[in-house]
């Protein structure tokens, strides 16, 4: 899922500026799971903003609304009335949700309430970690199901580098060495011979480096045209 983190309150306050009516729009999917922008977090953010505004003698109305998925038009259409009434919208959805709202409501300022961090999972209570770099060219079958692009600090395809120590990355001992995880997993799978293979340079063009990406399913497009 998409992992996000709420922005600092000061930053959000600075976006509000002169607005008198603010809609805080949450999303009940990924950002709710990672406790950054679901219904509960929208409530917390609204309360914090109300208190902060009162302390500054501001007179701003904060309205709360959370939709099932902000990345889908049919869900964001359901809050049209609230969006139209507000001067600005603070969306606590991921960057996709913010943009979906902005596309849907062309003349309404839609501002981000969270920082979209990465594609990952909940590893433990209160701990989310990255798993996928969305590189567009998956080679997890070569690396024991552990992604070197997302989990090695240098995205090395022929790691580990000389900075791997006791299973930790040179960047921080808070980071597991992705290549140590790959070696351990290949050992468990009895596939250590894969480590002897020189992996060739990656085609980064399938990732972000090829420009904004699109997936087209021709049969569905043809269907639509009929």
């Amino acid at each position: 899922m998409i992992i996000a983190e709420r922005k600092p309150l000061e930053e959000i306050l600075s976006m509000i500026g002169q607005a008198r009516s603010v809609l805080i729009a949450g999303c009940a999917t990924c950002v709710a799971d990672c406790m950054a922008g679901g219904e509960r977090e929208v409530g917390i953010l609204a309360s914090a903003l109300r208190i902060a505004q009162r302390q500054r003698n501001g007179d701003v109305e904060f309205v709360e609304a959370t939709v099932e998925r902000q990345c889908e038009r049919e869900f964001i259409d359901r809050i049209r009335e609230l969006v139209e009434k507000a001067d600005i919208v603070i969306s606590t959805a991921c960057g996709i949700g913010v943009q979906a709202m902005a596309e849907r409501y062309g003349t309404k300022p839609i501002y981000p309430g969270v920082n979209t961090r990465f594609l990952g999972l909940r590893e433990e209570e209160g701990l989310w970690t990255e798993r996928c770099g969305a590189c567009g060219d998956c080679t997890l079958h070569l690396t024991g199901g552990v992604c070197p692009v997302a989990r090695c600090s240098k995205s090395l395809l022929n790691g580990p580098c000389g900075g791997s120590t006791k299973g930790k990355c040179e960047v921080s001992d808070e980071i597991d060495c992705g290549w140590q995880l790959i070696v351990d997993r290949l050992k468990a799978l009895g596939q250590l011979d894969l480590l002897e293979v020189n992996i060739p340079p990656k085609n980064w063009a399938s990732g972000r480096h090829g420009g904004p990406r699109k997936v087209i399913k021709k049969e569905l497009r043809d269907e639509k045209r009929k």
Binding site: K154, L157, N158, G159, N198, P200, P201, W204
Partner: peptide, 11 residues
């Protein structure tokens, strides 16, 4: 890190 050291050597 377009290439890693292994791929640089090869190049």
């Amino acid at each position: 890190f377009d290439l890693d050291s292994m791929q640089l050597l090869d190049m």
